[in-house]
Nucleic acid binder design. Structure first.
Lengths: 165, 165
DNA sequence: AATTATATGTCAACACTACTGACCAAAAAA
DNA sequence: TTTTTTGGTCAGTAGTGTTGACATATAATT
């Protein structure tokens, strides 16, 4: 296959470089999820539980609809893991005051403890990578990741990620 | 939770910044996989098939053992999708000449076509992100992703990724 | 030549995560 | 009051992953 644009591309846009970018993301994600996966086994949970615990922990009081929009899974997929987390007292649901149909989601103390346990090895991994690469590389890392997002998602993601600045 | 090291960390190692790095990776991977996922539906395939097609396409003649080491799944998990791809003539197996126990893996023309179809939107996505972020950011992106790898995997991953330089 | 180790495949059984499509109830909005 | 939104639930199905056991062919070692 020839170059994407047909014309002469800067070095980092060569075909080979693009495929390399694809693979690097696969490898990083593969290793990145391995630590939490190990921990989750001890709780009889899977990766889906992790995602719920993470985003509820980061966005206390979020609604189910907001969580669905972040995870991009169906209601039924979420329902199973969420109700399991509620049943086992990791997540607490509270009727919304403004809109009482909503079940606003919060971590319990137990849930917060799990959040911390799961995030510890990931934070350590990111910290190590950031430290080794340096501040400038970190800025580049973030810029490229943002560029990889669906364009119609960028604002939402940036808002979500930056909210706790 | 306090800072990781206890001491005063540079800004990009703040707790909040680390969690942001975790989330960005989740979001990028979520959107990154969405295009191929759509295409795969038309073939009755899933993400696992994609991974096999991708890595066999990138490493023609690789052995099953090598593929397992990259994917980090069990033989049984791989077996299902691989035998399906062979049965449907996307992947071809050829007895190794040096070691005739090995089944060396190659894409058929059909497999190569699928590889191209799947990689096209991902390459376009990476190209867009690289273009928007610039060469310097790309270098940082790659450095951080390498730092996120398990340390005992780095050499293998770098060898695999760089091999077609 | 006989033994051991390796590469691969296969089977059964199971678990987690995801999907679709249908349906229902409560509450908000029009 | 009617419509829409939010959320829950049910049944059925599919894709991907696991463990553990076992079989075969071949290579490597003794």
């Amino acid at each position: 296959m020839s170059e994407l644009g047909g014309g002469p591309n800067p070095l980092f846009l060569r075909e080979e470089e693009l495929v390399r970018g694809i693979e690097m993301l696969f490898y990083a994600y593969r290793d990145f999820t391995s630590d939490p996966d190990e921990i989750l086994k001890n709780y009889g949970f899977g990766r889906a539980h992790h995602r719920v615990v993470h985003f509820v922990g980061r966005n206390p009081g979020m609604s189910v609809a907001e969580l669905l929009a972040i995870l991009k899974v169906t209601k039924q997929s979420l329902s199973r893991v969420l109700s399991q987390l509620v049943r086992e007292d990791f997540v607490r649901q509270q009727k919304g005051t403004r809109d009482r149909r909503q079940r606003l989601l919060y971590l319990t103390d137990k849930g917060q403890a799990l959040f911390d346990e799961l995030s510890r090895p990931q934070r350590a991994r990111v910290a190590r990578a950031y430290r080794e690469a340096g501040a400038e590389a970190v800025a580049g890392y973030r810029r490229v990741l943002i560029g990889l997002l669906n364009q119609d998602e960028r604002d939402a993601v940036l808002a979500s990620v930056e909210k706790n600045q």
